[in-house]
Design a protein around this nucleic acid. Structure first.
Lengths: 158, 158
DNA sequence: CTATATTGGTTTCATTTGCAACAAAGGCGG
DNA sequence: CCGCCTTTGTTGCAAATGAAACCAATATAG
């Protein structure tokens, strides 16, 4: 006969209500929806688009800066940058006082892509948020900040 | 001279406030934090753990059922199942009336892993949510449902 | 029934990924 | 200056991934 403790008898792991799982599914579905807007049309991978996005916002970053801002690792950045440079959507220029660094910026071609894709991404975000009131959007923002803070307490890869 | 419309002059894509990006970063950090709890210790990949998790909750599913519940694709499920069966953490049994299907269930070994990892995962979720009030947790749940609904409107891979 | 389409699952192949090793440059203590 | 550690970025290799082809079993149309 099993324990007769009525409470906490069994830690119930139900994926449908398990926050990490729900976050993962939601996030993937959203990313895929956005990627569908540009991937075939502009022949851009997700990492490539991310790089264009940060550089559209802030030019002349180094690869490392890009990596930090996009939460991608440096290998991924290095490869996506190489590909973007080869396809003339990105240009490298030397840093004046550190020869290890290249400064990255969009070419006209890259800028054109940014100018076209950014509104699509923003539009999709608006659609996504259109089911929430202004009040709810604030709350969402607030809750996500709290979760961010919490996960960085727990989560740092030691 | 540029347009003098003061409003919506430029669609500003700022990654730090862009919901899809924030979701992605948060979700990845949470998943990684959980994976760190079991990956080396039990030699489990993330897909493998997901399969164990659903089968711990609901035994005797087919591979396809598992795929739907975990939002993984069938190739990934097939491979992870093969690996789990090989390492004796999962057992296949034939379905009585459809020979294409195998019913999957945890072995004692698989169950032991589930019983040990599930509490770890739940504990991490609790830690994550510990920064929110009961009220806020409800709101979060509610908001995520709304976002789920909205993304399924937009997002279906046509 | 038989022919055809559909479904469950696996395999093959090309691509993507991530880690570890590496080269090149810079910083820094002596 | 010189040796050594750190930082930036690239590359090699092995593992993970995904799309599409595929096989076997079932459902369905005629």
């Amino acid at each position: 006969m099993p324990s007769d403790r009525a409470i906490a008898a069994k830690p119930e792991l139900n994926l449908d209500t398990f926050l990490p799982y729900r976050l993962s599914v939601l996030s993937n579905r959203v990313s895929d929806a956005i990627a569908r807007q540009y991937s075939e049309r502009f022949d851009l991978s997700i990492p490539e688009w991310r790089i264009i996005a940060v550089l559209g916002q802030t030019p002349n970053l180094s690869a490392r800066d890009v990596a930090r801002r996009t939460a991608m690792d440096k290998v991924q950045v290095s490869r996506a940058v190489t590909s973007l440079v080869r396809s003339r959507r990105l240009a490298r220029s030397e840093d004046s006082d550190d020869a290890r660094i290249s400064r990255l910026s969009l070419t006209a071609k890259g800028r054109a892509i940014y100018d076209e894709v950014a509104p699509l991404a923003l539009r999709l975000e608006r659609l996504l948020l259109s089911s929430l009131s202004a009040q709810e959007r604030n709350t969402l923002d607030n809750l996500m900040h709290k979760l961010d803070r919490q996960v960085s307490l727990l989560g740092a890869p030691e």
